[in-house]
Design a protein around this nucleic acid. Structure first.
Lengths: 227, 227
DNA sequence: TGTTTATTTAACTCGTCGGTTCATTTGGAG
DNA sequence: CTCCAAATGAACCGACGAGTTAAATAAACA
């Protein structure tokens, strides 16, 4: 339609401005880390000015914290899009693994923020009260899948949902977080598109194997959603 | 008392001073990251002064690089201490997994440096020519184990040594690198001593299962060396 | 001992960057 | 139109910290 090309006057839309800043800051923080990120550079990525960054977020740390919270919320929200409740437990678990692998791969910025937060001892996430139960759904889903899998006689009796989650996370996070050092030390074969496919298949197979009762066949992989 | 408050004389021992600085810097960098580490604080941990840091290492980046190289060398050196060549392939692999898990756990500073390097895109390790072949022994060892395992009919025909290494690393690195965020989000049960033992056992079992031919029993875990 | 050179110290420089001040503009409500 | 509060811009400040200067002192060796 006929947009006013020249914003000779701005509309009051603080939320949009804040969102703009948040997005810019996420990139900048993810790229450079907390201390190397420059507020000036963040501002440069936005439609607004450095002054406004401090206007809407009190200081750099608060901004970083907002970015972290926002990124967590978004990524965890994305996880809810996986619908597996009507599938057989083994298929459901398999898809969950593949989905998580892809999802992390599709969100490298988030992974970097998590790395940064770990380096900083989790100092900033501790103020975020909502965080603990943003993460619950993932484990609850795994819990349901495990219960169903055991009930169906497909899974080992001693499956431990949180441990499975740990293993899925380990592979999916490591894949993104340590890409650089791993490639440099051992070559890039896993970090081509086909390499990633193979890796995902192997990770999936490995975890499935550890969960299924001995002898239970692994479901044929349904080629699944690429993120 | 009128004693010589300052040591009036010192011995010329540049190597010791450099090593002192290197150790202090490693702690400081591991704790705070590259940009948040303060040269002044590094100096404070040494017996010498800030000036000397610049005297022996030209600047902060060069010092960081020296630290990284030193840490890599030390950790990779430590890996050579594992002697498994005379063991059966399955037992050897199992011990390698357990050893790696423990070894990483015992070297959190190293892991943090690796995280930092990943965040910085590997910019500093690229100048280190020796790095690629510091890492070879680990994969070569795995290679030998795999060949022996296949030859003995214990391992699957399609084992891929580097992929196994990837999986061992993923678990061992994630365990240390993401301890903080994982505990905060999902509780600390895996990060007690007994929790770590259980986790290591599960990681080991999982990877063994993915390597062994279907039906092959996993060796009884020999309680192994704690790092 | 004397001379040279490596090592050390304290004080200083100076750019960078988070954060602020203050004046101005704009939108909106009455 | 008028007034107020929200929003914005430009210029500024101050501290923090990497890296330097220059002079002092001890070691090494003749």
């Amino acid at each position: 339609m006929n947009e006013p090309v020249k914003p000779r006057s701005w509309k009051q839309n603080p939320e949009a401005v804040k969102a703009d800043i948040l997005a810019a800051a996420r990139q900048e923080f993810a790229e450079h880390g907390l201390s190397r990120a420059r507020v000036q550079d963040i501002a440069a990525r936005t439609k607004t000015s450095k002054r406004m960054v401090f206007y809407y977020f009190k200081d750099k740390e608060a901004l970083y914290q907002a970015v972290l919270e926002d990124a967590y919320a978004e990524v965890r929200q994305g996880e809810l899009e996986l619908k597996v409740d009507d599938l057989a437990p083994d298929v459901a678990l398999q898809r969950l693994i593949q989905f998580t692998f892809d999802h992390h791969r599709a969100n490298p910025d988030f992974i970097r923020l998590v790395m940064i937060e770990n380096i900083h001892g989790g100092r900033h996430m501790q103020d975020m009260a909502e965080m603990p139960h943003m993460n619950k759904p993932a484990v609850l889903l795994l819990d349901r899948i495990c219960k169903a899998g055991v009930a169906a006689g497909l899974f080992r009796e001693d499956v431990h949902p949180l441990r499975i989650h740990w293993q899925i996370s380990a592979a999916s996070v490591f894949n993104v977080a340590n890409r650089i050092t791993f490639s440099y030390n051992f070559g890039t074969e896993f970090y081509t598109d086909t390499g990633q496919d193979a890796l995902r298949a192997e990770v999936t197979r490995t975890i499935m194997l550890s969960v299924l009762k001995p002898g239970t066949p692994i479901p044929q992989t349904p080629c699944s959603d690429r993120a």
